[in-house]
Design a protein around this nucleic acid. Structure first.
Length: 505
RNA sequence: GGCGGCGUAGCUCAGCUGGUUAGAGCGUCGGACUCAUAACCCGAAGGUCGGUGGUUCGAGCCCACCCGCCGCUACCA
């Protein structure tokens, strides 16, 4: 089995905000999970650096476009590591390997007869980087930027998307899970059923971009450039290797709904034209609605994920992203929710569980875990549920449901402590075997929780295993009751998620 | 306008192909415990499941209509 997951390539002229972090975190959770299963996994993210605005901003600062994007790409490149996202490659559209591949890719489409030349004309707002129709304007100006759009009329090359309507509909019919969740797929199908218009794949008179192989005077325009990254990266991410053989078309694209159409319609059509297989799956996640408002730069409610990491840590942010909103749907979330999750769930449920468990093992058994697995325990059943059903959840991109399932185990363990009352057992020598059993089950349940949560909490999970004197390994087959390694060195663990001082809260 | 979705406890949401007293988390109130990061555990209060009318032995779940939100309805990264 192989697993290839992508985020969109982010537009360098943005600042990284929570929405970007959200997609990247989700992709990393999936990637880590599939690595746990022993699958060969590839996780790609990166930046889109070619755009008119980039060039204009660079010029206004007296910089060359390449020089400019070299500077601002760093902010983006550092985002995944800050999130603890383990990417396999970070692509930039100005990478030579990408540029060469795009030219070859577009040439194939061209050779296939799907490209023609036509005149593109319209009112163009530079701020929006979009053409506007008359009825979108207010007093002849762009309502967002209050500037008059420019009338642009130029020769462009067009991709014959209209010729792919039937092929796309066939594809959708053959692949009922091609686009997830289903209601997004419906949007795609109804859109395509309504007929497709060709779209332009080039811009004239632009010095910044990838020149078309058959007309060096024009550069590839957005989708003809950006989308191709998912394929191009495989050709040069590892020098000397062509990863296409392994990972294409085993790809899952993750993104928000704003770019759904381009991924579900344009991209498959271009791939078919160029003679490639289409992606395995496309998953559209929802927006985190902060105070019921979509996160957006223009609304001014953008949240800097790095500030949240500075306060709560990457694990808490990842956990919150996975838990706060059912993945795939829009949902209201509030930044204060991170503080709640941190304290209630990570601190009180999970962190405190480790504290009390290790403290009791140290106190009652001098750091040793003398018990062993007991057949037919309730714990065994819960762990079996996690073992099999988390896989199923995550195969369906349900990162929220999966972590909820794991949390059921964590909650069970806390309840188990109270029910068994080890402090009472400890007072009665004749109950020593019982106490051993309880401590064993707690330690083993915690061990399993840590392994299952590793994809979500890559920083915390190793700490739990270390505190329990367990090898730091996360293979999914270890999510099984009774695989606790004997140990004699458990000491009371320091808090995993310390409370904040009142003044800091 | 067309297509799709949503409206369930104070809040955020689960409720599979219709079937005994409608669930979870948080919040509130009460209790219990002491291993632990004053954490954890138990219990209670709290819902005419948007409205109306149908189908059915029986509907939160099916149908019709209505009300209120939201998404998509083309070239924006």
């Amino acid at each position: 089995m192989r697993f290839y997951v992508t985020t969109p390539i982010y537009y360098v002229n943005d600042k990284p905000h929570l929405g970007h972090a959200y997609t990247t975190i989700a992709a990393d959770i999936l990637a880590r999970h599939h690595r746990q299963r022993g699958e060969e996994t590839f996780f790609l993210t990166g930046v889109d650096e070619h755009a008119t605005k980039v060039w204009r901003v660079a010029e206004s600062q007296g910089l060359g476009a390449q020089e400019y994007v070299d500077q601002i790409s760093d902010a983006w490149r550092s985002l995944p590591p800050r999130l603890n996202a383990e990417t396999d490659f970070f692509i930039r559209t100005s990478d030579e390997g990408h540029k060469a591949f795009v030219r070859e890719f577009l040439q194939r489409i061209y050779d296939n007869g799907d490209v023609y030349e036509d005149v593109y004309a319209g009112l163009y707002c530079v701020g929006c980087e979009a053409f506007k129709t008359e009825d979108e304007l207010v007093d002849g100006k762009c309502p967002l930027h209050s500037t008059e759009p420019e009338w642009i009329e130029e020769k462009n090359y067009f991709f014959r998307l209209s010729a792919y309507q039937d092929k796309l509909l066939e594809l959708y019919a053959e692949r009922p899970d091609f686009v997830q969740p289903p209601f997004r797929f419906n949007e795609v199908k109804s859109f395509v059923s309504g007929g497709l218009r060709d779209f332009s794949i080039s811009r004239a008179g632009q010095p910044w971009g990838i020149p078309l192989p058959w007309d060096e005077g024009q550069v590839a325009y957005v989708w003809a450039d950006a989308l191709v990254n998912y394929l191009s990266a495989l050709t040069f991410a590892r020098p000397g290797e062509d990863l296409r053989e392994a990972f294409w078309p085993e790809v899952r694209h993750l993104m928000a709904q704003d770019i759904l159409r381009f991924h579900c319609i344009y991209w498959p059509a271009m791939l078919l034209s160029a003679g490639y297989s289409v992606p395995k799956q496309i998953f559209i996640h929802g927006y985190l609605l902060l105070d019921d408002l979509k996160i957006s730069k223009s609304l001014g409610n953008a949240v800097d994920p790095l500030e949240l990491i500075d306060t709560y840590g990457a694990d808490a942010l990842r956990f919150w992203c996975a838990r706060a909103v059912s993945f795939g749907q829009d949902g209201s979330a509030s930044v204060s929710g991170i503080a709640d999750r941190y304290e209630r769930e990570l601190g009180n449920d999970l962190g405190n569980l480790l504290s009390r468990t290790t403290a009791m093992i140290a106190r009652y058994r001098d750091g040793a875990i003398p018990g062993g697995p007991a057949a037919g325990s309730e714990l065994e059943g819960l762990i079996a549920d996690v073992h099999t059903n988390v896989l199923r959840d995550l195969d369906g991109f349900d990162i929220t449901g999966a972590v909820d399932r794991i949390w059921t185990l964590v909650r069970h363990l806390n309840r188990y402590v109270t029910e068994q009352a080890p402090w009472t057992l400890a007072k009665d020598e004749s109950k020593a075997a019982e106490l051993d059993q309880v401590l064993y089950d707690l330690a083993d349940g915690l061990r399993v929780s840590a392994i299952a949560l590793w994809a979500y909490l890559p920083e915390t999970a190793p700490k739990i295993l270390e505190a329990l004197g367990q090898p730091v390994a996360f293979d999914w087959e270890l999510v099984e009751y009774g695989r606790l390694e004997p140990t004699t060195s458990v000491a009371a663990a320091p808090p995993l998620f310390p409370r904040f001082e009142v003044s800091a809260a």
